[in-house]
Amino acid sequence: LTVQLGNLEWHFDNPEQALKMAEELAKRYQLKVEIDNGTLKFK
């Protein structure tokens, strides 16, 4: 699973870790998370 923020990307083997990080980033920057083809992206 990949977490993508702008041109930064983090790759996780563990989806739970990816979701946890995505939630933290979304909270911190007040963004919405969307999943696009196995990639978590922020809007």
Rank of each mutant, 00 (worst) to 15 (best):
L1A: 06
L1S: 05
L1E: 02
L1Q: 04
L1I: 12
L1G: 03
L1N: 04
T2M: 08
T2E: 03
T2P: 03
T2S: 07
T2F: 06
T2C: 14
T2L: 08
V3F: 06
V3L: 11
V3R: 01
V3E: 02
V3M: 06
V3S: 03
V3H: 02
V3D: 02
V3I: 11
Q4V: 14
Q4H: 07
Q4P: 03
Q4I: 14
Q4Y: 08
L5T: 03
L5E: 01
L5S: 03
L5I: 08
L5V: 06
L5W: 15
G6M: 06
G6I: 04
G6L: 06
G6V: 04
G6F: 07
G6D: 04
N7E: 09
N7I: 10
N7A: 12
N7L: 12
N7H: 13
N7M: 12
N7P: 11
L8H: 12
L8D: 05
L8I: 11
L8Q: 11
L8R: 15
L8A: 07
L8S: 08
L8G: 04
L8Y: 14
L8N: 09
E9D: 04
E9V: 15
E9M: 14
E9K: 15
E9C: 15
E9W: 13
E9L: 14
E9F: 14
E9G: 04
W10I: 08
W10D: 00
W10A: 02
W10C: 11
W10L: 08
H11W: 10
H11E: 03
H11A: 05
H11M: 05
H11S: 06
F12P: 01
F12Y: 07
F12R: 01
F12C: 15
F12A: 02
D13M: 08
D13R: 09
D13F: 08
D13N: 11
D13W: 09
D13Q: 10
D13L: 09
D13H: 09
D13Y: 06
D13A: 11
N14W: 06
N14P: 04
N14H: 08
N14S: 11
P15I: 13
P15E: 08
E16I: 13
E16V: 13
E16H: 11
E16N: 10
E16L: 13
E16G: 09
E16M: 13
E16Q: 12
Q17W: 10
Q17A: 13
Q17R: 10
Q17Y: 11
Q17F: 10
Q17C: 11
Q17N: 09
A18D: 00
A18W: 06
A18M: 05
A18P: 02
A18H: 01
A18K: 00
A18E: 00
L19F: 14
L19T: 05
L19V: 08
L19A: 04
L19S: 04
L19Y: 14
K20W: 08
K20E: 08
K20T: 08
K20V: 08
K20C: 09
K20Q: 10
M21K: 07
M21P: 00
M21N: 02
A22T: 03
A22V: 05
A22F: 06
A22P: 00
A22D: 00
A22K: 01
A22S: 04
A22L: 07
E23F: 14
E23R: 14
E23M: 14
E23P: 01
E23W: 13
E23H: 12
E23A: 12
E24T: 13
E24C: 15
E24Q: 14
L25W: 09
L25M: 06
L25I: 14
L25Q: 00
L25T: 01
L25V: 05
L25H: 02
L25Y: 09
A26N: 03
A26I: 05
A26K: 04
A26H: 03
A26T: 04
A26Y: 07
K27S: 09
K27N: 08
K27V: 07
K27D: 06
K27G: 05
K27W: 09
R28Q: 06
R28V: 05
R28I: 08
R28N: 04
R28F: 08
R28L: 09
R28P: 00
Y29M: 05
Y29F: 13
Y29G: 01
Y29K: 01
Y29I: 03
Y29L: 09
Y29P: 00
Y29T: 02
Q30R: 11
Q30I: 05
Q30A: 10
Q30G: 15
L31R: 00
L31D: 00
L31A: 02
L31W: 08
L31P: 00
L31F: 06
L31Y: 05
L31C: 10
K32I: 15
K32F: 10
K32L: 13
K32S: 12
K32D: 06
K32N: 07
V33W: 15
V33P: 03
V33E: 00
V33N: 00
V33Y: 15
V33A: 05
V33G: 02
V33D: 00
V33Q: 02
E34N: 06
E34R: 06
E34T: 12
E34V: 15
I35Q: 08
I35G: 03
I35R: 10
I35S: 05
I35D: 04
D36Q: 11
D36L: 10
D36P: 01
D36I: 14
D36C: 13
D36A: 10
D36M: 11
D36G: 08
N37P: 02
N37A: 08
N37V: 04
N37R: 07
N37W: 04
N37Y: 04
N37D: 08
G38P: 01
G38C: 12
G38Q: 07
T39M: 11
T39N: 05
T39E: 04
T39C: 13
T39D: 03
T39Y: 14
T39F: 13
T39L: 10
L40E: 00
L40N: 00
L40R: 01
L40T: 00
L40F: 07
K41M: 07
K41N: 04
K41S: 08
K41T: 12
K41W: 08
F42C: 10
F42T: 02
F42I: 14
F42H: 01
F42G: 01
F42A: 02
K43Q: 09
K43V: 14
K43W: 12
K43G: 05
K43I: 14
